[in-house]
């Protein structure tokens, strides 16, 4: 079971996990990640806009989920990614995986979010208290996090 949604509306992480479990009978492990709009003392923001490439986004996320399915022994996975204007504390992205055992579920979740960060066509713009806005620069660390999945096969990855 694979569920991909690119949407403006919020989502319910508990409901997503329950739906994932319902579609993956026999799963012994469910793992999930929720990304949230961050605003803290070191870097306060008023809001964030997520722009995306509508004609490409769902297909790009499908390809990422497909890659996860090839690498890990998954029974199901869910990706929900929001776009539009979001306030601090609002949820941005949900990744959920179901597998027979925890290692595949946990590692596939990490893989999915690492690849979403660098391979799903979204761009974040932060809006600051002084009225200015800035596009978030891609982090070399994010690229390195995504690339390590190419370089280092992990124990639960299937040999293709």
């Amino acid at each position: 079971m694979r569920r991909i949604s690119v949407q403006a509306e919020d989502f319910d992480p508990g409901a997503e996990i329950a739906a994932l479990q319902a579609c993956a009978p026999g799963a012994g492990a469910l793992a999930s990640f929720v990304g949230v709009v961050r605003s803290d003392a070191a870097h306060p923001i008023m809001s964030m806009t997520l722009e995306h490439y509508p004609a490409m986004t769902v297909a790009a996320v499908e390809r990422i989920a497909e890659a996860a399915g090839q690498r890990f022994a998954l029974l199901g996975c869910t990706v929900v990614h929001r776009f539009g204007r979001l306030l601090p504390g609002e949820r941005i992205v949900f990744v959920g995986t179901a597998a027979s055992h925890r290692r595949a579920a946990l590692e596939a979740t990490e893989f999915l979010i690492d690849w979403l960060k660098t391979r799903a066509p979204f761009w974040k713009q932060e809006h600051l208290a002084d009225g200015s806005s800035r596009w978030v620069a891609a982090l070399a660390q994010d690229e390195a996090d995504a690339e390590r999945w190419s370089a280092r096969p992990s124990p639960s990855e299937r040999l293709v």
Partner: peptide
């Protein structure tokens, strides 16, 4: 860049009717 919704490099061929997109490095997730 992307050509017809697939990521592409500088050497990628373009032809009549293609959809080409230009954007900064992705900041999703």
């Amino acid at each position: 860049a992307a050509v017809n919704q697939a990521f592409a490099g500088q050497d990628a061929a373009i032809s009549d009717g293609d959809e080409v997109a230009f954007f900064p490095p992705i900041t999703g997730g």
